[in-house]
Design a protein around this nucleic acid. Structure first.
Lengths: 203, 203
DNA sequence: ATCCGATTGGACCGTATAGTCCAGTTGTGT
DNA sequence: ACACAACTGGACTATACGGTCCAATCGGAT
């Protein structure tokens, strides 16, 4: 019954609710965020929310889709021209700088959602698994480019390396967020970069 | 007013409540676990809970302490004799096997708690930060041993390497839990091991 | 046997939350 | 200008939750 605004006004309302929900959930988590909080921040009413979303779970899934698009597309943009170690380092630096600017709150929206929902909301878990997969695919594309340029040896398994890199990023973000110390992320990323570089020449 | 059982019976009651809370929170998260659920599983009553814990937050902090002790002490035991690459690999294998046996639910209790509580419960965040620190210290001790044996070059910064290793473990667990695929953890750990090995000889 | 603190059962309370309902308003196509 | 669907406001409901309270019971010390 709900979903899909038919007018411009409706579209903006839906967007306002979604943005407010995304922000609050990013900061507090799903369970800790109430619909009333979302509605207050979005300047909307109950009936507006339920006009566009079947229930809270549907809203959460929409938030997942929004965050996935934001993070993955944002990463794609930043990684688009990267074809050197310096370029990869610059991206790592940007990640660390971003966390520092947020005082290490939040971490990664996808990672936080995954940690909270993986065991309690199966459809959400699948969405998030796909999000991680497309993110890893982006990283793999970069590694492939580095390999094609001769910076990584040809027989290296870039898909697996991408999984490793993503894992290290996620773990580094979690440690940084927990200790409020961006150096934890820094350490993790520097080492990950070091490993990738160590794959330059054949054994 | 609450805390500290004075008799053996009380001690067991407190322990039952704590164990039930730890299990439920590990599977569902803090917010998704209600006190009534805990009491049903522990076969205890409200007054018993509030006799030993000031409020839900106090119970959660006790769970954090319990899980920290379990995980860190467990790790200490498993890593105690490790002084070779084979030993480290065996530990990694055990981590992967454990996740596989759990069908990749749960992941790491400390990591899950950290992701959920870091931004909403400051004292809990500090507890968890300390948990990560002592865990990292254990890893560092192993790396120091490897270094002393000449397997890692002397000038390597084992503290930073320990942070990196912990981050990769946490991230690998998160990816595995989200995708229900233990290979994600496997890939992360194998790469981390590869990096540590690459530090054998001077540049 | 008696006492007294430790412990226990469970009814009870206030509140916050997800979700419902419907009457009213707005805007768009004709 | 009219009709009709899209949209909105907000009161309302049921329930689940964290937390309180107090009377009853238990068990060791004297």
């Amino acid at each position: 019954m709900p979903e899909e605004p038919k007018t411009e006004r409706g579209r903006r309302t839906r967007e306002r609710i979604l943005a407010a929900a995304a922000g609050l959930i990013e900061r507090q988590g799903v369970e800790a965020t109430s619909l009333d909080q979302v509605l207050t921040e979005a300047q909307a009413s109950k009936s507006q929310l339920y006009h566009y979303f079947a229930d809270k779970q549907a809203l959460v899934r929409a938030v997942i889709a929004w965050q996935t698009a934001t993070v993955v597309d944002g990463t794609a943009e930043q990684l688009a021209g990267v074809d050197s170690w310096a370029g990869l380092d610059a991206w790592f630096d940007a990640l660390v700088a971003h966390q520092r600017s947020l005082d290490c709150h939040v971490g990664c929206p996808i990672g936080s959602l995954a940690a909270e929902l993986a065991d309690t909301d199966e459809p959400a878990r699948q969405d998030l698994a796909r999000a991680f997969d497309s993110w890893a695919a982006q990283l793999r594309a970069v590694l492939d480019r580095l390999r094609d340029r001769g910076l990584i040896r040809p027989e290296a398994d870039t898909a697996t390396l991408a999984q490793f890199t993503l894992a290290t990023i996620q773990g580094g973000l979690l440690l940084a967020k927990t200790t409020r110390d961006p150096q934890r992320l820094r350490a993790a990323l520097t080492a990950a970069g070091g490993y990738l570089r160590s794959l330059a020449s054949p054994p």
